[in-house]
Nucleic acid binder design. Structure first.
Lengths: 217, 217
DNA sequence: AGATGGTCTTGACAGTCGTCAAGAATGAAT
DNA sequence: ATTCATTCTTGACGACTGTCAAGACCATCT
């Protein structure tokens, strides 16, 4: 509600705070919040507007239709989460350190961003029925795949190993594990945090057990 | 879209054929067909009825409301696909044979039952937003987990190995791989069949590489 | 034959949806 | 102060939704 923003763009913005594009983004972020709570199917434009600073009619001023809003939201979300683990990869000085840093970050994502991620899985499932979502979903998937691959290849570097599987397979496995843990967490089933930490600790080394040198046999 | 004129189909007894429960099941199977085409969110009761032999009002004769119909459909679907790989497991005489048999069956499922499986992933995602779906989704997930575990443990038996991971982890990995391949297949991206076959051929042995390295005799 | 009761159709209801048009509100330019 | 384009609100529209009531249909029983 209360905008701390008092900056006014000179030529473009005659009303409202921020530029046209900034208000588009703010509307999209409101939409993402609502989508994360209700899910793609049950979120209406009126509900999005009600949870924002705008009225329901303004959506068609900033977006052609509902689909364009959703796609814009997806792309905006993509930029938010694509490089979440980069700092973990860069700051890791040992294989074990990377492992625990990655696991901690995954747990943090699981507990603090569960709504955004269930929305992501919701949209990805919807893309199997709705063709206009597929391209953006595919791009995000590949971005996440690259992100995971940065972690795995960095681990194999630090451990002096070679990954056993390709980036695609590695990503789908982690993704499956994360999605399963997310469902457990959201459903309030205990042990999700411990389980996913354990899986990371065992899976990454197992996926990188092919050593250039002989490991302690 | 489809004009539902008052065209009368039956020509047979207006009193339904089969028992009450049988007609419930037939209605549920019609609903599953429609759900597989349109997805959970975009399927209305009228659309379900239009694709069935009944009119739209009859749904509330057999089901209290939409949710009860959906849950019934999910449970019915559960019984259809829970033991799909049992024959493969039973008929396998060697580790390699199990591997190829399992991969072939997975490919068959991928290509011939893609609609049912995208519906399954759709419902599973919805369960993260809709609490009343969670219990049934959870049950199905555990049933599928058991199914995968039968394959993995049978493989390790035939190969004289021990699985490296638990049933939960094994299932989530296969599930992630299958879901990814399913998205590729549905989107018409080439290589999904070859990719998943390859993944099975490499992943299962990798997950069972523990203990003595006795190859499949 | 008529009566019965389970089965099914039809039509309507109240609500919600996306969309849009008309115009009010706003601030910059003149 | 007037003009003017941009921004936003309001209210409406037709279409769609789940649900339900009223009654038609029909096999069976008496």
């Amino acid at each position: 509600m209360a905008t701390t923003e008092s900056q006014q763009k000179p030529a473009r913005s005659r009303r409202g705070t921020g530029s046209y594009d900034e208000r588009r983004i703010r509307l999209a972020e409101s939409a993402l919040q609502t989508l994360g709570e209700l899910g793609y199917a049950r979120t209406s434009l009126r509900e999005i507007a009600a949870n924002s600073e705008f009225s329901h009619g303004v959506i068609h001023y900033y977006f052609r239709d509902k689909t364009e809003l959703i796609v814009f939201c997806v792309k905006h979300y993509k930029t938010q989460c694509m490089h979440r683990y980069d700092s973990v990869v860069e700051e890791a000085r040992s294989a074990d350190g990377l492992l625990t840093g990655f696991a901690d970050k995954l747990v943090q994502t699981l507990t603090e961003e569960s709504s955004m991620h269930r929305l992501w899985y919701d949209l990805r499932s919807q893309s199997m029925f709705q063709e206009e979502l597929r391209e953006d979903v595919y791009d995000i998937d590949r971005g996440l795949e690259d992100m995971i691959w940065r972690v795995v290849s960095r681990f194999s570097d630090l451990a002096g190993n070679q990954p056993l599987v390709g980036s695609r397979a590695a990503y789908t496995m982690f993704d499956g594990i994360f999605e399963s843990a997310l469902r457990d967490h959201i459903a309030g089933r205990a042990g999700a945090v411990e389980w996913i930490s354990d899986q990371i600790a065992t899976l990454i080394p197992a996926l990188c057990s092919q050593s250039a040198e002989t490991e302690s046999a």
